[in-house]
Simulated assay, not measured.
Amino acid sequence: MYSGNRSGEQGYWEGGGAAGAEGPGPAGTLSPAPLFSPSTYERLALLLGSIGLLGVGSNLLVLVLYYKFQRLRTPTHLFLVNISLSDLLVSVFGVTFTFVSCLRNGWVWDTVGCVWDGFSSSLFGAGSSPGCSTSNLATC
């Protein structure tokens, strides 16, 4: 029977031989091997880092401009500030876990970290940021 996600033992099967024995699963099953090559993880980390920095920088600029200039304080601009704040929070909380995982060639957080990553991206509006998604939940 597949054991599910257990910290440090993702992708292992139980009950293969002796009672309680653990080992790699049969051929063609989930294994603890990385999904991508190290160079692909480096490219993903570069892409996520760029998206994170651009997201933080541009959204902070929007918030500062809204605060600094009185004439920008209209209901329409307030809606845009709300979207910008949401995207800023996704850039900070949503991209960070995935970025660190790409630097380490795979998901390095436990189940709680995985749930927080998906929850924060969903709560802060993952649809407003092109690089963030809750697809990590399938890989944790």
Rank of each mutant, 00 (worst) to 15 (best):
A19S: 08
G25Y: 03
P34A: 14
E42F: 00
R43F: 09
T29L: 03
G17P: 00
A27F: 06
E42T: 04
A33G: 02
P24R: 14
R43Y: 07
E14V: 15
G28W: 08
W13F: 12
E22D: 01
G23W: 07
P26N: 09
E14S: 14
L35A: 13
L30S: 07
A27V: 11
T40N: 01
P34L: 12
E22C: 06
R43H: 10
W13E: 14
E42R: 15
G28V: 08
A27D: 13
G23S: 15
S37V: 01
G17Q: 05
R43A: 11
A27T: 08
T29F: 05
A18H: 06
F36T: 00
F36H: 11
E14L: 15
P38Y: 02
A27K: 14
P24L: 15
P38V: 02
E14R: 14
Y41N: 01
S39H: 04
G28R: 09
P34V: 12
P26D: 13
S31W: 02
P38L: 05
A18L: 12
G15F: 02
L35H: 11
E42M: 03
G11Q: 07
P38A: 07
S39I: 01
A33E: 15
F36L: 15
P24T: 12
W13L: 09
G11M: 07
E22G: 04
E42Q: 12
E42N: 05
L30A: 13
L35M: 14
G20R: 10
A19I: 11
P38M: 06
G11A: 12
T40L: 04
R43P: 00
F36M: 12
A21E: 14
S39F: 02
A33V: 08
G25N: 13
P34N: 13
T29N: 01
Y12V: 07
A21K: 03
P32V: 05
G16W: 10
G20P: 03
S31F: 03
W13A: 15
Y12E: 10
G11P: 04
Y12D: 01
G11F: 08
R43G: 04
P38H: 02
P32K: 09
P34E: 13
T29Q: 08
W13K: 12
